[in-house]
């Protein structure tokens, strides 16, 4: 059981559950609630001020560190090929029997080697092709299960909000009130990359119509060309900037209901 000052602190920091908030607000007078709200505003203002004070990572520092890591990866990927030049003198001379090109076994081994090489090349090409494909080609489908199936993570509003927070896209996604005119559901989410740009992709529905929600940096563009809207006769799209992030909502239903659930004031 939390003591009173801890409970107030958790209230100001928005760390209480909905039930705990309701329970506490029942016990507090209007003046006390207003006092705690004022406290929250003060802390938020101070935080925003401190947040604006830090410098970005220097580009040259990052470039140096990145180069080190990439060169290590590339070194590990290289197949070590013994050099015939300068190092040859260090290799002890071993008299090996000469290859007999008329021996059937030599040709069999050579053929197996060539077949193996061909397999490796084919596999690498397949892997590269697979990696180049955009990962978020969305086809709008009336079947909601199929629509939700690519989600890396399935869950409701609270879970999706936490997921977005964990993957570095801290937007506040509110749970819609039961009285809301539109019936909005959250189904799941995943992180996708399109042309080296990272987006959080949230699967939602509004009045039983599938809606696509993307969250990216404020300066990113909506990746229209990677989303297949051909199943729809028309679609709506709208966006909202929240701090350094932008939320896009697109789909066959008007996006205003869903977009109103996003804000950046609190997590």
């Amino acid at each position: 059981m939390m003591n009173q000052s801890r409970e107030y602190q958790a209230y100001v920091d928005e760390q209480l559950s909905v039930d705990q908030v309701i329970n506490l607000e029942k016990r507090l007078s209007k003046e006390e609630i207003a006092e705690l709200e004022r406290e929250r505003e003060y802390e938020n203002h101070i935080s925003n001020f401190i947040n604006d004070s830090g410098p970005d990572c220097p580009d040259d520092l990052w470039a140096k560190l990145k180069d080190q890591m990439i060169s290590e990866i590339e070194q590990n990927e290289d197949v070590p090929v013994p050099s015939i030049g300068s190092k040859q003198k260090d290799i002890p001379v071993v008299h090996t029997p000469k290859l007999n090109l008329h021996d059937f076994r030599v040709w069999a081994i050579a053929a197996m080697f060539i077949i193996n090489c061909a397999f490796i090349v084919a596999f690498l090409q397949y892997r590269n092709t697979k990696n180049d494909q955009p990962q978020n080609l969305i086809v709008f489908n009336e079947d909601m299960d199929q629509f939700a199936s690519p989600a890396e993570f399935k869950g409701n509003f609270t879970d999706v909000k936490q997921y977005l927070h964990n993957v570095g896209l801290p937007v506040n996604l509110r749970t819609p009130s039961p009285n809301m005119h539109h019936k909005i559901k959250a189904l799941g989410a995943r992180v996708v990359k399109v042309q080296e740009q990272r987006y959080g992709e949230v699967y939602m529905s509004c009045c039983d119509k599938p809606m696509l929600v993307l969250i990216g940096r404020k300066d990113q563009q909506f990746p229209n060309e990677h989303i297949d809207f051909s199943n729809l006769s028309f679609y709506h799209i709208d966006s909202k900037v929240i701090g350094d992030l932008r939320v896009w909502v697109a789909g066959p239903h008007k996006p205003d209901g869903i977009i109103s659930l996003f804000d950046g004031d609190s997590i």
């Binding site: 830090g54 990052w62 890591m69």
Partner: peptide
């Protein structure tokens, strides 16, 4: 490496 690159400014500001 991509994830580090994505969050480098956030991490650097935190350290600062």
């Amino acid at each position: 490496v991509n994830m580090l690159e994505e969050y480098r400014n956030e991490f650097f500001r935190y350290i600062y």
